[in-house]
Simulated scan of single mutants.
Amino acid sequence: MTTRRTFLASLLAASASPAVGWAAVGNPSYVAAAKLPDGSYMLAGLREDGTEAFRVPLPARGHAACAHPERAEAVGFARRPGSYALVVDCRDGAVLHRLTPPEDRQLNGHGTFSQDGALLYTAEQRVEDSEGVIGIWDTEANYSRIGEFASHGVGPHDLRIMPDGKTLVIANGGIKTDRWDRTKLNIDSMRPNLSYLDADGMLLEQHEIPEFAQNSIRHLALRPDGLVGFAMQWEGEPGMAPPLLGLHRRGETPLLCEAPLADELAMDGYAGSVAFSGTGDEIAITSPRGGRLHRFDDEGQFLGAVSRADVCGLAAHDSGYLASDGLGGIQLVTADTATPLTRTEAAWDNHLIRLRS
């Protein structure tokens, strides 16, 4: 017979038990969303060799994801404008929590955990005017929403925790959209920016690139020494070839990384993902529209291009980069060579998210 004393003792023992870590689900190194041939969607865990460690279903198209730093939990985010984010147990695919933003907020496809995993930060925007909001969720209290603060820009997309563990860097895309679709409303007046905020949402530093105001700052990569890479998408006149990659250190002016004109034109004004290499001495961007991957050194010099149809997902790999494409392929990219690793009957979505550095 269970008494109150034994019941409380069991609760205490359970709370003292260590959380199930990533080793329990096959030690994946990456997570990525995909569309399956039957039209359903999934979130998968991938190992360094591209093989699957787990897969869990998603209710609709996913975009990016983030993984808890210790527990085998991942959050899959809906494509912008999103109305859901799912916290899943990567052992068995159980949905632990479904995050729903307030009625006048939209999720924008990305989120990040605090360094200790206690908080989840989500990129959001107000429905009425696309002003940026960063939602705050308490992971120790069933992922309850405990607050928010301004992103200090319009249409925030990606965000990361800086190596100091207390500063957020945010890619404010600058694009105002229609209430519940992706129609762009302010291309002639957009002002994307890269913003750094403290844990209370106070703006510490902000950078715009006035000469390329129609270059939406979309995605971020972060090196352990604090160097930030940001990928951009051109919303201006077609046929232009603006730089699509920038590098930034706090307190300095952003550096734009330019490829030769023919290579820049081949990217079709679109960088879908950005990542530092495994060694950190170079950085790359992908273009599914152009079917290309461009490599640069960490001072912004162009190193070369790799061709791959519909390539978009990109993350660091010990040997260079891991890249995914919409045809189900996973490739290892080293220098100017892409070596196929695996192919899945699925269309990988935009991002590969590395679980650990």
Rank of each mutant, 00 (worst) to 15 (best):
I175N: 00
G174S: 12
I146V: 15
G155P: 01
K176D: 05
G147M: 07
T177Y: 05
R145F: 00
L168M: 13
D164I: 08
D178K: 11
G147H: 12
R145E: 07
T177Q: 13
T177S: 10
R160K: 15
G147S: 12
T167P: 07
V154R: 02
L168Y: 08
A171T: 14
P156C: 05
Y143P: 02
F149R: 03
H152N: 10
T167D: 09
I146S: 08
D178M: 01
G153Y: 00
E148T: 14
G155W: 00
S151M: 05
V154K: 00
D178V: 03
N172T: 14
H152M: 02
G173D: 03
H152Y: 12
G165Q: 13
P163Q: 12
V169T: 11
H152D: 13
R145M: 09
P156M: 06
S151G: 06
I175P: 00
G173H: 01
P163Y: 08
D164T: 13
V169C: 13
G173Q: 02
F149P: 08
F149W: 14
P163V: 13
S144H: 13
G153E: 02
A171E: 07
V169E: 09
A171Q: 06
I146F: 01
S144E: 14
T167H: 11
S144K: 14
R145G: 04
F149L: 05
N172C: 15
A150M: 03
H157Q: 13
K166A: 15
H157Y: 12
L159W: 01
I161W: 04
L159D: 04
G173L: 01
T167I: 11
T167A: 12
I161G: 06
L168F: 10
G147P: 06
M162D: 05
M162E: 14
G153T: 06
L159E: 03
M162F: 05
I146C: 11
P163R: 10
K166H: 15
G165T: 13
A150L: 09
H157L: 08
N172E: 12
D158Y: 02
I170T: 08
G173M: 04
T167R: 09
S151C: 06
H157E: 13
G155M: 04
P156L: 03
Y143H: 15
D164H: 08
F149Y: 14
E148I: 07
H157R: 09
M162W: 05
I170C: 04
D164F: 11
G165S: 11
G153R: 03
A150G: 09
P163L: 06
R160Y: 00
I146D: 01
H157F: 03
G165A: 14
K176N: 04
K166F: 07
G174K: 07
G165C: 12
I170Q: 01
E148H: 14
I170H: 03
T167G: 09
F149Q: 03
K166G: 15
V154F: 02
G153C: 09
T177M: 14
E148M: 07
K176Y: 01
N172L: 11
I161R: 14
P163C: 09
K176S: 11
A171H: 07
P163W: 05
L168K: 08
A171C: 10
A171R: 02
A150P: 03
N172R: 06
I170N: 01
A150C: 10
Y143W: 15
